[in-house]
Design a protein around this nucleic acid. Structure first.
Lengths: 210, 210
DNA sequence: CGGGAATTCACTCTTTAGAGTGGCGCCGCA
DNA sequence: TGCGGCGCCACTCTAAAGAGTGAATTCCCG
């Protein structure tokens, strides 16, 4: 946590060199913010974070080697005062919820303007939360909606891979009937018409990737 | 086409302000390149292109209002000497093929480094083509693979929306049998196990979005 | 003009998915 | 300790999907 008068020390983690350049360039004129390190993937982010202990990490979710969500989870359990601003291309209430539950304080889309990002960094450094307006609306839209359990997500991933219920059962060591029950639950929760529709919805809401 | 000695006039089109900043910042020290305009969506890209007639447009595919692919198609048919470098987050051989067929000269991923982008701009301004190594490999992997027809993509989109074959038939004004035949063809072309798998593959290869 | 690809459609048959219903055990939390 | 959520499983029944085979049309291109 930065004392007033001292700049906020920021770590930038994004696998796009262009995006890192854009961020550094954008934050440069801001005297209250100092970029102390950059990381191009999740593993490097872990290393650089432990090395520099920034006040806030500005982090993308889609990163090679180690997923951004995992990075957030790991570092938040290591350091109670770790602060994260997620800056990513994808919305999806489930992804946002997961990030916030893992310890992120802010979630912005890459369509965000300079003001949003600056404000998020200041707010989060003060221990507050800041959601982009579009993200907040997305979350609000699905508020009250049930999230999927870990088991349901596992089943969904296998469905997306084109596996039949019998095969899914074998891979998860349960009966085909159990798989059917799980799927029925998934369809109800996502309000999907069939398994294919469920996968589409799950992807767009961020339960599963790709 | 820029004469030697005169800088290449470039239009940047990307809906991420950060990315535009990064690009401008990256291209600034390059004396052979001059950024003459920026656009934050497809419609603006059309306007700015017609207004400034850049030598090369550096364009993202995912843009609001008008899709990047449509922008490329439109401008290439308006101006025979229009040149495009696609710079986007998503790979997928089908997306690349579509972009190149519509008239793009280069396809890079946003993970590209400065050298790649600079080189692409110079090459394309000279009328040559330049594919990122990762993109080229992706295309090569699926070389010889049959692409999907327009009708097949339509069917696939409706499948992804959770529509049943009968409903798909009604929406496309064909019989349910025809839909089945189409789907059988799609499964064969994509080497998919079932309709759900087909949608997954189609998304990852860029035949359909989201 | 011939060949090929795309699109359309029909008929049969087997497998799979999904709806409906009911029951059992585990675990966390009020 | 009881409730609720989660996970497990069985049985039935209907609708849908997918495999297999065959065939007609249009339209573009060499």
């Amino acid at each position: 946590m930065s004392l007033s008068g001292q700049p906020i020390r920021v770590l930038i983690a994004d696998d796009h060199p262009l995006m890192r350049d854009g961020l550094r360039f954008m934050l440069q004129p801001e005297s209250g913010i100092e970029v102390v390190a950059e990381a191009a993937d999740g593993a490097e982010c872990l290393t650089k974070f432990r090395e520099h202990r920034p006040d806030v990490a500005l982090i993308d979710l889609q990163m090679p080697k180690v997923d951004g969500l995992r990075v957030i989870g790991t570092l938040c359990s290591e350091y109670a005062d770790a602060r994260f601003v997620v800056l990513t291309s994808f919305a999806g209430d489930a992804r946002v919820s997961r990030a916030l539950n893992l310890g992120a304080s802010s979630y912005l889309l890459k369509t965000a303007r300079r003001d949003d990002i600056i404000r998020a960094l200041y707010d989060v450094a003060r221990g507050r939360r800041y959601l982009g307006s579009d993200v907040a609306q997305d979350v609000a839209t699905h508020r009250g909606t049930e999230l999927l359990s870990a088991r349901e997500v596992s089943v969904l991933r296998l469905i997306a891979a084109g596996k039949k219920n019998r095969v899914i059962g074998e891979e998860l060591n349960v009966s085909e009937q159990t798989v059917k029950t799980r799927i029925k639950n998934i369809l109800a929760k996502l309000q999907a018409d069939d398994r294919t529709h469920a996968v589409s919805i799950a992807v767009s809401r961020g339960f599963i990737d790709q």
